[in-house]
Measured scan of single mutants.
Amino acid sequence: MDETGKELVLALYDYQEKSPREVTMKKGDILTLLNSTNKDWWKVEVKITVNGKTYERQGAVPAAYVKKL
């Protein structure tokens, strides 16, 4: 869990989004888990830093590609 009490997951593999509802992640990324009720796809929040600014993006990733921490 992070400092706000939200559950975290670890990306076990790289994943490139294939639709606007998904998010890209790299192996080793730590993501915030938002919903894991679907056994195949979990909704997560990814933090992306671009030019020193951090953005948050929500989307789905394959459940088999992440592990709860």
Results as ranks from 00 to 15, higher is better:
A11H: 02
N38V: 05
Y55M: 11
L10G: 00
T4Q: 12
K18S: 09
E45D: 02
Y65F: 12
K43W: 15
V61N: 02
A60C: 15
G59L: 08
T4I: 12
G52Q: 05
E45F: 05
V61T: 01
G5V: 12
R21E: 14
I48W: 12
T24E: 00
V61P: 03
E56L: 15
G5L: 11
A64G: 11
L34R: 02
E17A: 15
K53I: 14
R57Q: 07
T32Q: 08
V46E: 01
P62A: 03
K43F: 15
D2L: 14
V9P: 01
A64C: 15
L34W: 03
D40R: 11
T49M: 11
D29Q: 11
D2Y: 11
W42E: 00
V9D: 02
K26H: 10
E56I: 15
G5M: 12
A11P: 02
M1P: 13
G59Y: 05
L8D: 03
I48D: 04
T37Y: 09
R21S: 13
G52Y: 03
K53V: 14
E22K: 03
K39H: 10
Y65M: 14
G52A: 04
K18H: 07
D14T: 05
A64M: 10
L8W: 13
W42C: 05
G28I: 03
N38Q: 09
E22Q: 10
V61L: 02
W42T: 01
Y65T: 08
E3W: 12
M1N: 13
I30H: 03
D2C: 15
M1R: 13
D29F: 05
W41D: 00
W41R: 01
D14P: 03
L31G: 04
L69I: 13
L12N: 01
E3N: 14
L33W: 01
V9N: 01
V50F: 08
Y13F: 12
D14Q: 01
L12K: 03
G5E: 13
A11Q: 00
K43Q: 15
W42F: 06
A11M: 04
T54C: 14
K39T: 10
N35D: 15
L33M: 02
I48A: 06
Y13A: 11
V50R: 10
W41P: 00
Q58H: 08
Y13S: 07
V23R: 02
G59S: 01
P20V: 09
A11G: 03
N35P: 02
E3H: 14
A60T: 14
G5A: 12
L10E: 11
K47T: 14
Y65W: 06
V61M: 02
G28Y: 05
V9H: 01
G52S: 05
S36V: 07
D40A: 09
R21Q: 14
R21M: 14
L12T: 02
L33G: 00
M25Q: 01
W42K: 00
G52V: 02
L31A: 06
V50N: 07
L8Q: 10
K67A: 10
K26L: 07
L10Y: 10
T49R: 08
K47L: 12
A60Y: 15
V46I: 14
A11W: 04
V23N: 02
N35I: 07
K6V: 13
V44L: 01
E7S: 11
M1K: 12
P20G: 09
E22R: 03
D29Y: 05
I30G: 00
E56C: 15
L10R: 08
Y13D: 07
D29V: 04
Y65L: 15
E3C: 15
D29T: 06
E7Y: 10
A11R: 02
W41A: 00
R21Y: 14
N38H: 11
T49I: 13
L10K: 07
V23C: 04
K18I: 06
L34Q: 02
N51G: 11
E22F: 05
P20W: 08
R21F: 14
L34N: 01
E17Y: 03
T49Q: 10
S19H: 09
W41L: 03
A60M: 15
Y15F: 06
I30R: 04
D2Q: 13
W41E: 02
G59F: 10
L8F: 14
Y15E: 02
N38T: 06
K26M: 08
Q58R: 10
T54N: 08
T32W: 09
T4C: 15
I48M: 10
D40T: 12
L10I: 15
V9I: 07
G28S: 02
K6A: 10
T32C: 11
N35T: 06
A11E: 03
L8K: 12
Y13W: 09
S36T: 09
T37S: 14
L33D: 01
P62G: 03
V50C: 11
L31C: 06
Y55I: 14
L69R: 01
I48C: 13
V61W: 02
T24H: 03
K47V: 12
K47I: 12
G5Y: 13
K18P: 04
G28T: 02
S19R: 06
A63K: 05
G28V: 03
T24G: 08
P62D: 05
K43I: 15
A60I: 15
K6D: 09
V61E: 00
L8I: 07
K67F: 07
N35C: 13
K27S: 06
K68V: 11
G59T: 01
N35Y: 04
L12R: 03
D2E: 13
G52H: 05
R21D: 15
T24R: 05
E3T: 14
A64N: 12
E17Q: 12
L8N: 05
R57D: 03
K6T: 10
W41I: 03
P62T: 04
T49D: 09
I30Q: 02
A60Q: 15
W41Y: 06
T32E: 07
V23A: 05
Q16K: 11
K53Y: 11
A64I: 09
E22Y: 05
R57K: 13
S19E: 06
E3P: 13
Q16F: 13
D29M: 12
T4K: 13
I30Y: 05
G28L: 02
